Simulated assay, not measured.
Amino acid sequence: MSTFEVTSELYSESDFATINTPNGNSVSRFAFVLPAEQNSKSGKCLNGKNREPDPDCNNEERAQYIDPITHNIECEHKSENDQSECLKCVPFKRKESLPQMDKDGDLVVERKQKDVIEIEHHKSTKLDLVGLQIWRGALLLADYIIYNEKKFKNRKILELGSGVGLTSVVSSFFAREVICTDINVGGLLDLIQSNVNRNSHLKNPDCNVTVTELDFKVRYEDYPSELKSTLQDVEYVIAADVIYDDDITEAFVLTLESLLLELPKLKAVYIALEKRYVFTVEDMDSVAPCYEHFLRVFHRRNNRFGITRWKLMQVPLTFPRYFIYEKVKELVLLKISN
């Protein structure tokens, strides 16, 4: 793995009111805005209690399949010869709500709640410690979780490769339990726990957040019995910015395969990443080698018995942006399900 220092592009995109700490780390403030319907008088904003259900919030994504051979995106609703636009894949839009008046006839103005997540992190690291930084994929996945609050509310969520814990913190707004996992190097698990504690005032008070080690290179059968037991009722697995090295990618896919096979209540896996393009003489084109390698390895494991066991789909990025970052076209959100 490279010994060069790498730095996330996030830090040059916006002012996160970053301060340096005596231990050489940085603490940044990631501001976000909750949807107006999560800030109504009828319910509390972050903790998930006493909130009125949003009838327009049940918006299962208009997913598109990824062809396992060509890696092209295919609409799941169209036949091979149908070149017309598929109306089911037109980006989902929420209904426009009519202006509301109070009992005195005054216009009711919806006020969106603004809040801040504080995260301690490194500003630059070597490649094998990139989890100590924050990357765009974590904010993309956080946006998706906030937009799909109804899906994740009162669920048990496992995050793989939690890094400094930002996406797990966002998950704790709505979930009943969040398991943050990563490898225990460079003080990473202690840093995740510190960030969870730092933002505990934001979480659902009924949510239990735990931090523990899960190494992609350790086989599922070798997990501690306590970890295997607590994973049995996990309903969603999430991961952001974990595809950047071929060896780690292969171990990550094996971990996904084990979890998909061993967790009986698992509904779906969501993976957010940013495709990193490079120009290669072999291809005479700009390619995203790490992303392409992930697709190849997953396809190989998914079809190893001659049948396709799981669906890999690309989720359209039509949901709003609640955090401040550049939602660049290279960002991708994948969904794996039965």
Rank of each mutant, 00 (worst) to 15 (best):
Lys153Asp: 11
His121Ser: 02
Asp190Met: 10
Gln100Phe: 03
Phe174Gly: 12
Asn148Ser: 09
Val90Gly: 06
Asn81Asp: 15
Phe174Arg: 09
Pro91Thr: 02
Glu159Ile: 01
Gln113Glu: 13
Glu61Ala: 15
Ile183Met: 08
Asn58Ser: 13
Lys114Ile: 10
Asp104Arg: 13
Ser162Arg: 00
Lys95Val: 05
Asn154Thr: 09
Asn81Ala: 14
Glu159Tyr: 02
Ser124Val: 06
Asp128Met: 07
His121Tyr: 00
Leu188Cys: 13
Gly105Gln: 09
Gln83His: 07
Ile134Gln: 04
Gln64Leu: 12
Lys126Asp: 10
Ile119Pro: 01
Pro99Arg: 04
Lys114Leu: 15
His77Pro: 04
Ala138Trp: 00
Ala63Met: 15
Pro99Gly: 04
Leu166His: 04
Cys75Ile: 02
Arg111Asp: 11
Gly165Leu: 07
Ala138Ser: 14
Gln83Arg: 13
Asn59Pro: 08
Ile145Trp: 00
Asp190Ile: 02
Ile117Asp: 04
Lys103Ala: 14
His121Leu: 03
Phe174Val: 08
Asp104Thr: 09
Asp143Ile: 03
Val130Ala: 04
Val169Gly: 05
His122Phe: 14
Ser172Glu: 05
Leu160Asp: 01
Cys57Asp: 15
Val90Met: 14
Gln100Asn: 12
Tyr65Thr: 15
Asp143Lys: 08
Asp190His: 10
Asn59Met: 15
Asp54Pro: 05
Asp190Leu: 12
Asn59Tyr: 12
Val116Cys: 05
Glu60Phe: 11
Val116Trp: 01
Lys95Glu: 13
Leu158Cys: 03
Asp115His: 10
Asp128Asn: 13
Ala138Gly: 07
Ser172Ala: 11
Ile146Glu: 06
Ser79Glu: 13
Pro68Thr: 03
Ile192Glu: 01
Glu76Cys: 13
Ser97Cys: 08
Ile134Thr: 11
Gln83Lys: 14
Gln133Tyr: 00
Leu160Phe: 01
His121Phe: 01
Ser162Lys: 00
Leu98Val: 07
Ser97Glu: 14
Asp102Cys: 02
Lys151Met: 11
Ser97His: 11
Leu132Met: 08
Met101Gly: 03
Lys156Ala: 12
Thr167Asn: 12
Ile134Lys: 01
Gly163His: 00
Glu96Thr: 10
Cys89Pro: 02
Asp128Tyr: 09
Ser162Ala: 14
Asp54Cys: 12
Met101Asp: 06
Ile134Leu: 15
Asp104Lys: 14
Lys123Glu: 07
Asn184Thr: 02
Leu188Met: 10
Lys88Ala: 14
Glu118Met: 14
Val116Asp: 09
Glu120Leu: 06
